[in-house]
Amino acid sequence: MQDKHEPTPPPKPRRQTQGVKKIDTIKEFGQTDVPAVKTNIHCLPIIGQIEGHLILPPQNKTTKYEHIIPQLVAIEQDPEIEGLLIILNTVGGDVEAGLAIAEIIVSMTKPTVSLVLGGGHSIGVPVAVSARYSFIAETATMTIHPIRLSGLVIGVPQTYEYMDKMQDRVIRFVEKHSRISEAKFRELMFQTGELARDIGTVLVGRDAVEVGLIDEVGGISKAIKKLQEFINEEKNKKGDYLH
């Protein structure tokens, strides 16, 4: 550990004088001197596990449902925010929390664009397709596989039916909000010989676009440009109502 705390730290030369000065102005005068960077686009990073009903052990990096939902509500309401960019690098997580986030994004009136960077696996798939337009980086991957039950599983047909129902929620959502058909998505989900430990498929960049899951391969420039296009469209629409 580099920054172990010493008992009596000698006064260090202040390297970032600007940062220190700003904290001082907050302390002394109750004012913040923040550079006025106005942005009309907010960015929602979804990283690690999506956390819902249970708190996961601390070695997991998590995106918490209770953080994301109020942020989305605030974005929807704030008149200064005109668009939302969702950046995904997630390994999935809680089904209910993931679907809840996806449903909120779908029902937003403000333009939304998603960008899968690194990975958008499992429950990350519905979140990625929930935006009005979706992008995937050329090297990013998306894993589609069946849902598993954790904890005590009772080996009766009802267990299977319950799991099937949960799976259908995800499949139906993805089918409704992307170009992929239900049959194709199920085929990818139950593919054998693709994954080492499981059945399913890994889609890399362009593959996700070819099967119709994601709209386009691209990066941040394309995503922002698309969002700006949507914002302009929205503004024109509003203009039409006025005149």
Binding site: Q49, G52, P57, H121, S150, G200
Partner: peptide
């Protein structure tokens, strides 16, 4: 809770210190 993740569950649920 249903976890939908490609990570092995023992890796996700392995309990650590707080």
């Amino acid at each position: 809770m249903i976890l939908y993740t490609p990570l092995p569950l023992e890796l996700v649920l392995m309990s650590d210190d707080s």
